[in-house]
Nucleic acid binder design. Sequence first.
DNA 1: TTAGGGTTAATC
DNA 2: GATTAACCCTAA
Length: 290
Amino acid sequence: MGAPKQKWTSEEEEALRRGVLKHGAGKWRTIQKDPEFSPVLSSRSNIDLKDKWRNLSFSASGLGSRDKIRVPRIKVPSSSPSPSPQLLLLPAPDNVAEASPPEDIEKNPEDDKTSVPKYSAMILEALGELKEPNGSEVTTICNFIEQRHEVQPNFRRLICAKLRRLIGVNKVEKIDKSYKLTDAYAKKLLAPMKDPSQKKKDPAKPSKASKNVGLFPAASPALDAAQAAAMKVADAEAKAHIANDHMMEAERIFKMAEETESLLTLASELYDRCSRGEVLTVLQSAHREY
DNA sequence: TTAGGGTTAATC
DNA sequence: GATTAACCCTAA
């Protein structure tokens, strides 16, 4: 079709990172025009910067690229204020490397059966319970999911992707800007629960409804308990990651404090000596420091 | 100008 | 076929 996709080079990525550090996320035009970065980013528009940053953030939040180490970012409970764009800054690559791979959201082989379709399941759950005749908007779906589950900061985009996928497999249909379960799929879900004749047919076989772990009220208390346990484990893991992040940040601040203190000491010493009439050159001062 | 939703090409 | 990254479109 059009021009081939222009892959971002590591130089461009680095320039973008530094640009965001310098001007903040959201100042794409400023970054793009900054003489420091414009030579590298000349072939990129401000929109490109925004999109790339979004992709980078997306990767770092645990859903990202194949070739990057990803950081799990589970939404912090309401106790933490909504982060400013600055706080959403990606960690430097070095820091990212410290974090454990965030496969736990959707790719943990341990709980594949429940977590792989997790977001899809949440969507289906939401649509199944919202039951809005004209479908539910993405925002409504997201709000519903947010109220019930721990989600990542930018899970909304993933929800959109999942919705498209569900449309593709005929489980969901799109009406204007809203989404609802397709009649066929809704019937399929309800049939095993509602149709008494089906119950009679083969009670030994597990019904389809019982397969929908996490979708609708679980058929067995054991499933309920398993789900609850899985949620708790995921929650604990998320908290551990957050704690780790905070520790790293604390260490960084501590180092900065140390550096600042030594500078302060140096400055006051220089001041003392100068006030005693000593003549100091910059070289002397620098030498003394290092 | 930006954010966010959507589409498409590339890759696995 | 699923996922990711780059690109496009539109509303605010």
